[in-house]
């Protein structure tokens, strides 16, 4: 069955036609052309398709598009404001917290949300919150350093 759903994506209201069996990841990437949502394992293991659904990180390969009717979605494209990167994005650049960069959108998004909720996380808390995202280059050390250094900007807010 085809139906219309409306959702807010990165602040914009969108109405899309979707089939009942379509996944959120496909609607975001193929219909709304939001390519910061990466597709890799398709079964909820790698976490690269993570988006914020009503402020909560979820893996969009395990969510039906019809389920998010009326919801608010934020992807990595929705973080910067007026062309200015968020502190966590700058920290990732400063710390070289990426190699191939394929996992970076998911890590940036999840760490941004982590710092909004907990502006002063311990290393254990960072590891636990991000354990659902895999970096095959193994840049975890730099990612954790980047998050620690960005945390001061979130405390000021």
């Amino acid at each position: 069955m085809v139906r219309k759903i409306s959702l807010t994506v990165n602040g914009y209201r969108k109405t899309v036609e979707v089939k009942d069996n379509e996944l959120l990841i496909d609607v975001l990437r193929d219909k709304l052309k939001i390519k910061g949502v990466k597709a890799a394992c398709w079964r909820g293991e790698c976490g690269l398709c993570t988006v914020l659904l009503n402020g909560e990180p979820v893996k969009s390969c395990l969510v039906l598009a019809v389920e998010v009717d009326g919801s608010e979605i934020v992807t990595v494209e929705g973080l910067s404001r007026d062309g200015e990167l968020t502190p966590i994005q700058k920290a990732f650049i400063e710390h070289g917290a990426l190699q191939c960069g394929f996992c970076t959108p998911a890590f940036v998004l999840a760490s941004h949300q982590l710092l909004l909720e907990n502006p002063n996380p311990t290393e254990e808390e960072i590891k636990e919150k991000l354990s659902g995202i895999l970096c095959r280059c193994g840049t975890y050390y730099e990612i954790i350093e980047a998050i620690k250094s960005a945390s001061k900007f979130y405390q000021k807010k």
């Binding site: 979820v58 893996k59 659902g132």
Partner: peptide, 12 residues
Amino acid sequence: VKLASDSIIRNR
């Protein structure tokens, strides 16, 4: 609960 899967999966 804390050891089940990962924290992003646990949100769903």
